[in-house]
């Protein structure tokens, strides 16, 4: 069972990279989910429809995952306060810090961008400290 999830990690990672490379190769765009999502609202000039189809693809992807036997988690058992605080901070932080796990963690580090290497180390470290503190408190 343990080995199975390790294999899933490797295969999942390769698919993430192949997907991001495909988008970059053909359209010149970075797969940064927070940036693509935020860009949807910046409609001052013209709506960039590729952002809509990309987000739509993410949303409908579980349908395809299910066909090959992979499902979403049965339930989300985070508390409402964790969901609320988490949502706000993730939105604010990815905006101010110009990226999230996909944009900095995969594409940015993949381009060997120093900014992304620093940002990724930073958010993984603060996330680990947060988990520790929350564990300590509860």
């Amino acid at each position: 069972m343990e080995q199975l999830t390790l294999m899933n990690s490797v295969i999942g990672g390769l698919i993430l990279a192949a997907s991001a490379l495909t988008l970059l190769f053909f359209t010149g765009r970075i797969t940064g989910v927070s940036g693509i999502l935020h860009g949807l609202w910046q409609t001052t000039f013209s709506i960039e429809y590729w952002r809509i189809t990309f987000i739509l693809g993410l949303i409908i992807s579980p349908f395809f995952s299910a066909i090959i036997g992979f499902n979403l988690p049965d339930q989300i058992d985070m508390s409402w306060s964790a969901i609320s605080a988490g949502g706000l901070l993730v939105g604010l932080g990815t905006r101010v810090g110009s990226g999230c796990t996909s944009g900095h963690g995969i594409c940015g580090i993949g381009r060997l961008s120093l900014r992304s290497i620093v940002a990724t180390s930073m958010f993984i470290t603060t996330a680990m400290i947060t988990v520790l503190l929350l564990k300590f408190v509860s």
């Binding site: 989910v33 993410l58 579980p62 988490g86 949502g87 901070l89 993730v90 996909s102 940002a119 947060t130």
Partner: peptide
């Protein structure tokens, strides 16, 4: 960059959810 990444990390640590997985879910 440093401030934003830290804020994002705190939110990620609280919820376990980042933007991509949120949309997929």
């Amino acid at each position: 960059l440093l401030f934003g990444a830290s804020i994002f990390g705190i939110g990620w640590g609280i919820s376990g959810i980042c933007p991509g997985p949120a949309l997929v879910n």
